[in-house]
Design a protein around this nucleic acid. Sequence first.
DNA 1: ACTGAAAGACATTGACC
DNA 2: GGTCAATGTCTTTCAGT
Lengths: 150, 150
Amino acid sequence: MDHIDRALLAQLQQDATQSYAALGQAVGLSAGAAHERVRKLRERGAIRRTTVDVDPAAVGSAVLAYVMVESTSWMGDSAQEFAALPEIVEAHVIAGSASVLVKVRTRTTEQLQDVLRRIYAIKGVSGTQATVVLETFFERPLSPLTETGT
Amino acid sequence: MDHIDRALLAQLQQDATQSYAALGQAVGLSAGAAHERVRKLRERGAIRRTTVDVDPAAVGSAVLAYVMVESTSWMGDSAQEFAALPEIVEAHVIAGSASVLVKVRTRTTEQLQDVLRRIYAIKGVSGTQATVVLETFFERPLSPLTETGT
DNA sequence: ACTGAAAGACATTGACC
DNA sequence: GGTCAATGTCTTTCAGT
């Protein structure tokens, strides 16, 4: 994982459809060498998958909210229960007064309310505190170029 | 945007490297027809871009935190100021007591502290409340199949 | 809008440095 | 780990339905 690998990751985040020739040129490598490096990045799991960024509005998901989930018991084994709700796009165990933080996308606020109801139904959940997003400034991939990791 | 388009989006989210032949077969279309539909989805902006999902740990970003940013003034025009900090991967204007919610990835907690310092330096910011993530259950794309939109 | 086929570009592999 | 050149596959386009 040197600076060339990081540059490749940044390039692919920006546009994963570009050819290996273009990719190589961007980082000063031949197409074959770029291909081999990207293959290894996939192999190691540094690249988890190639995907498309879908506009939530285009699939009818206009409402975004973050929900702090409070609990009376250990929530560390409840991943499946949250994953079972398709409107939940992220779930994290957090430090602090709440136990779990989830990110929810729905079409309407009524649907959000329904998701909250279903979260309440999860074993151990004692309360929720929803924060509705009014406007998203930006959502972007993590920049590999600013990092100092191995 | 019919059920075939949504199936195509779901397929591409899962794996954007598959051929149009495979894509077409998955939704019951020829390669050419699948290609044309995906082209239009890109044209309309339903597909914003094709990208790679990078493992944060692989680029040395082990710390994830959400920060509630309180302010004394209107923050609606401060998008650039938050975007200037590369460790901030999301920024949203929210309803509630805080004004802005940001998602931050850093290598260490020391680096997180430095980001908080730089957030404080933004005009209008009167306080921050950081919530550190202990474990991420999952982060996944929005499922186009569960939506009822146009 | 979709099908099927043709042409050209690209991914992928291997021989060599 | 890299370059360069080959082979095979896929993208992309277009005439026809």
